[in-house]
Amino acid sequence: MKKITIKRKYLAFPYAIFMLLFVLLPLALIVFYAFTNADGSISLENFINFFTDGVTFNSFLDSIWIAFITTVICFVIGFPVAYILANKKYNRNKTLFLLFLLPMWINFLLRTIATRAMFEAFGSWLDIEITFGKATTIFGMVYNFLPFMIIPIYSTLSSLDKSYTEAALDLGATPTKVITRVILPLAIPGIISGITMVFMPTLSTFVISDLLGNNLVQLLGNIINLEFTQNSWNYGSALSIILLLLMGLTMFIEKKYNNKTQTAGGRIW
């Protein structure tokens, strides 16, 4: 029987076609719409509007701020959790880790609706008035994206050699110093990817702010949604591109930083 040989690169063809049709083509369309106005002629009108209409740019800053706050809270909660989970004493058989992953098995939309219902239930039990707005939106974002902070930090920390901390302790470092001088620097690759994985989706989401902000909180994602549903695709596309550029920038910084830490790590090893 003749041996059928398939060159390995052919295996990538389906994905290449998929990329072309569902990633590159839509992207090209977005770019096209962004640089044309409603009449179909080429213009920079949309980008000028972004800075001058006095609303969108403010919402943009607001979105960055909310994403920043969410990321900080996620880090403050997520790092200690990841640290504890990475310790085999508490997380034998990885059951605890699994418990933290469990909420992610439920659909994101359902989770957000459930969060809303929880707020309402607590409000009526404790007889306090819960006003849905920025605070509840941030809560929902933290709740939804916390696992994305925990997982990368957890995986870097759990692959960390325990002897570093032992050596540091033997050499007379206090426990706080061990964390700040040894563990934290070594966990940086995980922290950076955790930050990007939380920061980027929070920047563009609009469902959480709609549901938990009672449609009163307007982030950039909400404006993009509005522009597209109101039939003005050009401005919506321009805003999407701005968001895309910002995400690209975050990715770029992450990559640069990660490369650096890796070379630093190389020296240590």
């Binding site: 403010n58 307007q218 509005l226």
Partner: peptide, 9 residues
């Protein structure tokens, strides 16, 4: 409409 919903920074 977007101006109505935009909170002052």
């Amino acid at each position: 409409w977007t101006r109505v919903k935009a909170l002052p920074l």
